[in-house]
Design a protein around this nucleic acid. Structure first.
Length: 398
DNA sequence: AGGTTAAGCGCG
DNA sequence: AAAGCGCGCTTAACCT
């Protein structure tokens, strides 16, 4: 069965959304934004449109004379989250703007919009999945995008609570645990990294233990956070400069961490170099299953463009292999549901997560089948692990 | 009126 | 010389 057939069925099935709940949240957000707007006007000493970049720069950098910490691509003073966080340490207005921005994003993109996307005939929201958009082989979700529903803040998770199952059914969420890092372990063949996954260790903790020369139980919360940043940064081709910026540490310190990492995980260091060289020789890189990403700028004479292509070359085999794996899993799950004439349905895919709507009578079977099928689509040098949760809504299924 | 770009930010 | 990969959506500002 082709992926396109699974997608067709998922799009047609759609997902149930509690529009009343989102509309109520919209009203709450609107009220809070109104209050924050008034506070911002007081702190600025004059009224202005908080959404207008031009007016905002006028207030922050001319009227209040705050320092310009970063420029945008076109040379204007940046007012992004990172800048406002720093300015918020010394001034009240940036903090207010951050709070306002956070709420405005939730309201305009989600709580106002999703209720309007409910199909009149089905009473559900039907996204469209694009199979030919993302160069790495991932799917893309549009109209609406259901792959970027908030999850990182409490206010945002209230939106997930509105993604519900009908009476008698539950929402099941099954996601691959650390799938891209596992793929890095597979592709690099690094023995330490493979060992950590085979021992079912907390991989960020294990990395912290290696990099900071600790035993597993000695690792502090901060060391684990640093190790997590290193692990993710590496998969994106991040430099010492970027790591230092992310962690708020000296560049030399970040460089030392990276050196320590590569000393402990020599297979990963070798992999990074091999992938750069292969990209340069072949003009493309491949996933485990042979999906290719061509890199037109890998031999560019422009160093910035070439470096960008190298970062893409490092990331694509991992992101792309993860995309291949979950597509195989989607086909396996959908085929099984049909073969056994079950009523459970795939309703969403979010890159490393499958969301299903499951009648309570089928929950036991789904809890056994879905992780087995997802972990069984490939045998890499490390085990694939799936975390599964369920509940009356998407938030509670996590 | 309608389309495009820039900046910003939601997710994995 | 730039500095972290892959997406889609919203608003303001600018353009035709």
């Amino acid at each position: 069965m082709p992926v396109s057939e699974v997608l067709f069925r998922m799009e047609r099935t759609g997902i149930l959304i509690d529009a009343r709940k989102l509309e109520a949240q919209s009203r709450e957000l609107g009220q809070k934004m109104f209050e924050l707007e008034a506070r911002a006007h007081r702190e600025a000493g004059q009224p202005f449109n908080l959404n207008s970049p031009r007016q905002l720069c006028e207030i922050l950098f001319e009227r209040l004379q705050l320092p310009v910490l970063k420029k945008t691509a076109t040379g204007a003073a940046s007012t992004d989250e990172e800048v406002l966080e720093k300015l918020a340490l010394d001034y009240p207005l940036p903090k207010t703007l951050l709070e306002y921005r956070g709420l405005a994003k939730l309201k305009s993109t989600y709580t106002d919009k999703l209720p309007r996307m409910v199909n009149a005939r089905t009473g559900r929201v039907h996204t469209c999945y694009g199979q030919t958009t993302a160069v790495t082989g991932r799917l893309a979700s549009t109209e609406p995008n259901l792959q970027n529903i908030p999850v990182r803040t409490a206010e945002g998770r209230r939106i997930r609570e509105a993604f519900v199952a009908p009476a008698g059914s539950v929402i099941v969420s099954a996601d691959y645990s650390q799938v891209e890092l596992r793929i890095m372990a597979h592709l690099s063949g690094d023995e330490s990294l493979i060992g950590a996954f085979e021992q079912r260790e907390d991989v960020h903790r294990a990395t912290a233990a290696e990099v900071f020369n600790r035993s597993l139980h000695e690792v502090t919360a901060e060391e684990r956070r640093y190790a997590k940043a290193i692990n993710f940064g590496l998969m994106y081709g991040m430099s010492a400069f970027g790591l230092a910026q992310q962690l708020g540490i000296e560049r030399a310190t970040a460089q030392a961490y990276i050196a320590s990492y590569f000393a402990r995980y020599p297979g990963v260091a070798r992999f990074m170099e091999t992938i750069r060289a292969r990209a340069r020789e072949q003009g493309y890189v491949e996933t485990v299953f042979g999906r290719r990403l061509f890199l037109a700028e890998i031999a560019s004479s422009n160093p910035a463009r070439r470096a960008g292509a190298e970062r893409a070359a490092i990331n694509a085999p991992m992101q792309g292999t993860a995309a291949d794996l979950i597509k195989l899993a989607m086909v396996a799950v959908d085929e099984s549901l049909l073969r056994y004439s079950m009523s459970s349905r795939l309703v969403l895919q979010v890159h490393d997560e499958l969301v299903l709507e499951v009648p309570e009578a089928e929950l036991g079977a789904v809890k056994e089948m879905v992780p087995r099928l997802m972990t069984g689509v490939a045998s890499l040098r490390v085990p694939l692990v799936v975390d599964l949760g369920f509940g009356p809504n998407w938030d509670r299924a996590h």
